[in-house]
Write a protein that binds this DNA or RNA. Structure first.
Lengths: 217, 217
DNA sequence: TTGAACAATAGGGAAATCCCTACTTCGGAA
DNA sequence: TTCCGAAGTAGGGATTTCCCTATTGTTCAA
């Protein structure tokens, strides 16, 4: 088995030392470098490209979120495993959006780390059980947001048709040409949409539609 | 502890028998009924309302998705735990949309089932690790869509400030008042935004911002 | 130190959008 | 049947937005 090249990013040297010791028990893992914050990581990456980065979430100067974003922007093939001491709802979402492959607690046991490394190295994802619990709650929030939107105004077919075109970015004239009516009529349908949704202009109508996921982009 | 009333829905009697046996090892769980498909479930629900339904996803006649939707429509307080033999990407999404509280593999172990029942009964969610892996892949797909987009233009601070206000639905005059400049200046910043993003009007600028997640709603 | 590039400011006129009113059609209720 | 309301159609005039041009201040490198 070829070695998996790893970089550790954490602002506490003691943690890095301990963690490297832990990783050394995997013969196929090679810690090629360390960094104590995001900025340092970016410098290090100019010289050494690892397979996997273990990234602390809370760091001074450039935190895990920003560091992950920037690193992935420059090197999209990087795999990042986010490490955190406590469960932080906010960071979790941001790190996922930044594009990390895995998210785990620092006090995970050695088997968990092994699982995570192998899973991520082979192109998968890994989330520790605590994270899973948090994620599933989040998913529920998403769903319930979708459910509670049921009390939406009722649109006529013509209104729906026009709303879709509006949200694709077409102006009154363009919409009129597409569906063979006068621009003036388009405007009337729009003002009906304004009334039903309680907004005052096209921009706000578009915002409303995206917010309520009436149109999917 | 009061008993948790449970209904099993699965088209295989053998599975139902086995599963009931498993559930009987929890003294606080009471399997009050069974159904072999969605239609039967709906009939059963007219007489018996459980706390939790274990719902097979793949069933003849009325499948888990449809059954869950209809059941929740009539009895919104029901909690549903979806059960599946294999991981099916498609069903997963549909079941989540239908509004199930939990999603697990049938071959989960007894501890997992216990966790799921308790979590769901207390108003939470439960997803087994395999499901979360699938979900995280989904999240990943979202992300990669984000990464592959064109490189975003660089906005000045003023432009970012104005873009945010635009995406909150404010017009030129309102923005001007908020940040103490002339409406004309706001317009100029907007036209810079148009140029940088390649759009032709405010509506399309808002659409662009949502699509590229420059603003978060 | 002197341009050059760029950010921020703003005006005038053209174009698109918004508001109010009005006509036609069609299906269901009195 | 007749009448009413809802949906679809559209025009006139006010408002807002958009495009082109221009000035000022700041930074940075020749």
């Amino acid at each position: 088995m070829e070695t998996i090249k790893v970089i550790l990013v954490d602002d506490h040297k003691i943690f890095r030392d301990g963690f490297r010791l832990l990783l050394q028990s995997f013969p196929y893992v090679d810690v090629i470098c360390e960094a104590s914050n995001g900025l340092e990581l970016l410098k290090v990456l100019e010289v050494n490209i690892p397979d996997i980065i273990f990234m602390d979430v809370n760091m001074p100067h450039v935190d895990g979120v920003e560091a992950s974003k920037r690193a992935l922007e420059k090197y999209p093939d990087l795999k990042i495993i986010a490490l955190t001491t406590f469960l932080d709802d906010d960071y979790l979402e941001q790190m996922l959006m930044a594009g990390v492959e895995a998210y785990m607690l620092k006090n995970a046991d050695i088997e968990e780390f092994e699982k995570a490394i192998l899973k991520v190295y082979s192109g998968g994802n890994y989330f520790s059980a605590e994270i899973v619990a948090l994620l599933s709650d989040k998913l529920n929030i998403l769903r319930s947001r979708k459910v509670q939107q049921m009390e939406l105004p009722v649109f006529t077919d013509r209104e729906k048709e026009i709303l879709e075109l509006i949200c694709k970015g077409f102006g009154n004239k363009e919409i009129a040409e597409k569906i063979f009516i006068s621009p003036k009529t388009v405007e009337k349908h729009k003002s009906s949409l304004f009334q039903k949704t309680g907004v005052l202009n096209t921009v706000n109508l578009v915002i409303f539609s995206f917010k309520h996921q009436i149109v999917n982009f």
